[in-house]
Amino acid sequence: MTASTIARNTAAAGGDGAGKKPPRVPRDRTSLWRKLVRDRLLWLCLLPGLAYFLIFHLGAAFGMVIAFTDYWPGISVAQSNLVGVETFQKMFGDPDFWHAVVNTVEISLLQLVFYFPVPLGLALLLHSLTSTTIKRLVQNVVYLPHFISWVIVVALFQQILGGAGVVNGFLADHGLHTVDIIGNPDAFKPLLIAQVIWKDSGWGTIIFLAALAQVDDTLYEASAMDGAGPWRRFWHVTLPGIRSVIVLLLVLRLGEVLSVGFEQLLLQRDAVGPGAGEIIDTYVFYKSLGGGGDFPLAAAAGIFKGVIGAILVYAANKVAHRLGEQGVYR
């Protein structure tokens, strides 16, 4: 990964993992045309991917102009009237929208703090195993829940933690206090995080495991010969080896900070009400596709999310550079 190898190089160079700029070609004075001709094979490589982004993303991204019109699906964009920033004013003036933003950010941060480290920890635990058989077996088990759809996950959690569920049944049978988890707004966000941890932790280990697998073994060897124990090797070899991939994942995650599990929320929002369960995507859903038909609002919310995401990615990328990482771009 980006990441492990960069770190490997830097670690090999001195172990501080900092400050390595990307290799730059010496400034050449070749004319643009010559450069294009020289790199024609690179351009050929670029072509399919570039065409893909131009056709499917840039073309469709123009659809965002409907945020400034009164478009609805029965007419074309050209037939709609410009309304300027009216839709944005309506959206920003709606307290419900801001509640949804706050909820979204809260859930996102909780995920960052409580979910994000779990796959990392699990990957490190798996990585530390000496038995390849057990390691592979556990890996194969933990990534299974990723393939269970949200409808089933929600039903399973309700079956276990719900008012008529296994846990409360057990507590009631033994004369203990029952716990109110499903449908309790105060417990809702921890519940969401628990569901995500159950469903995706194992899946999330894959990228870390791949990164860990590529940490240069000779570094461990050298470090061990220098007398470093397991902890020191962990701090000085393992962590620097995957630091870049962690940074990369974090930066990209920040770009989507205003998107949290739409399907997961849509299924459970009603149980706790909008106060705890409305996120931007569900707010938009009920106003557009879910019956309201306000597609300009959906586009406006998309622009809002994109702008915030762009700012965060830009800032996080800068911070990453300060820390001596490549980040997503340079």
């Binding site: 073309g59 123009f62 659809g63 102009v65 019109t69 074309s76 964009v77 050209a78 037939q79 410009l82």
Partner: peptide, 17 residues
């Protein structure tokens, strides 16, 4: 609107023209 969205309109709007 056509002016505002320029080229994009051809991608998005043609079906209904």
């Amino acid at each position: 609107v056509f002016r505002a969205i320029g080229l994009g309109a051809t991608a998005v709007a043609v079906p209904s023209l």
